[in-house]
């Protein structure tokens, strides 16, 4: 469009640059602070240009915060949750879309409605379940009378073993795997796949699993990438859940949890070592930031398509 609006164009750039500054300044300050020594970082006003203590600070933060194993744990959890979510979304949506049975709409809604039950509103009981995962099933057995029936018939008391997920990777991963958004995204994708492809596969002699593996999954690569980026960021950034179920921080602590332990301040009776804290913060935020920066196309697509 031919439009001569020089003043407005300058204004546009001004607004956009202001936005840029507002969004980047916090990250910049974190970076600058992480490159100065203790004294400089605590001067008021603080310098706005990086200092020369970067390597020392980061080494110290890495070692003191134990970020090596913590990052590894975070990585294991993020990859596990992401892979699990994609797998489970792909197969449950496949069941709902490509098979005809009575309860499929009900099942879809059961999965979809979990959007309204975020972890934060059910933390206490979810924690209780994680402490003994089979308890719901034991109680169902008892309440339905099935347990009693079995015990009279077979003369044994049916009691499921106690299975605690506290302080384990399973506990960090499994409860986060159910995914309404992922299932929704995959369902939408399947609905756009032309019916003729399934028919051609049938004519080619492929059964349902073969069709899923050879045709649908490869076709869904774009969706997979989109889903993977948002889910990786989501699971790397988990904070409340690991905080609850991990007490064995040495072995199972995640990087984001570790932020709580590097908060400086009088609360912890130590000097405000902000330079170390900021170095730690930057390290923790880097992996998801890299994902967003390098996979931007996919992650924007994933977000917009799921409509949450």
């Amino acid at each position: 469009m031919v439009e001569r609006t020089p003043i407005l164009n300058i204004l546009t750039h001004l607004i956009l640059i202001t936005g840029l500054v507002m969004l980047l300044v916090p990250l910049w300050i974190v970076f600058v602070a992480s490159t100065h020594d203790f004294r400089t970082v605590n001067t008021v006003p603080m310098p706005l240009w990086p200092g020369n203590r970067m390597i020392e600070n980061y080494t110290l933060a890495w070692n003191q915060g134990g970020f090596g194993p913590k990052m590894l744990n975070s990585f294991i959890v993020a990859v596990g949750v992401t892979a699990g979510k994609i797998a489970i979304a792909a197969i449950s949506a496949y069941s709902i879309v490509y098979f005809k049975y009575r309860f499929r709409s009900l099942f879809f809604w059961l999965i979809f409605v979990t959007l309204m039950l975020p972890l934060e509103v059910r933390i206490v009981p979810t924690y209780a379940v994680a402490a003994n995962v089979l308890r719901p099933y034991q109680e169902l057995l008892d309440a339905s009378g099935l347990g009693a029936l079995l015990s009279t018939l077979m003369g044994i008391k049916v009691s499921l073993p106690e299975w605690s997920m506290l302080n384990s990777y399973t506990g960090l991963i499994l409860p986060l795997i159910a995914t309404a958004t992922g299932t929704f995204l995959y369902r939408q994708f399947y609905l756009t796949v032309p019916d003729e492809l399934a028919e051609a596969a049938k004519m080619d002699g492929a059964g349902p699993l073969r069709f899923f593996w050879d045709v649908l999954l490869p076709l869904s690569r774009t969706n997979m990438a989109a889903l993977a980026t948002i889910m990786f960021v989501y699971s790397w950034n988990q904070y409340l859940w690991p905080l609850l179920i991990i007490t064995d921080i040495a072995n199972y602590g995640t990087a984001v949890m570790q932020l709580q332990r590097i908060v400086p301040g009088p609360l912890f009776g130590e000097p405000p070592r902000w330079h170390i804290a900021m170095a730690g913060t930057l390290m923790v935020m880097t992996p998801p930031l890299l994902v967003v920066i390098f996979m931007q196309r996919w992650f924007v697509r994933g977000l917009v398509q799921t409509d949450k």
Binding site: E196, A200, L219
Partner: peptide, 17 residues
Amino acid sequence: EPRERGCAMVFQNYALY
């Protein structure tokens, strides 16, 4: 099932993978 009938089909929109 379709695969047991010995038929091959050409679809309207080709249905290529």
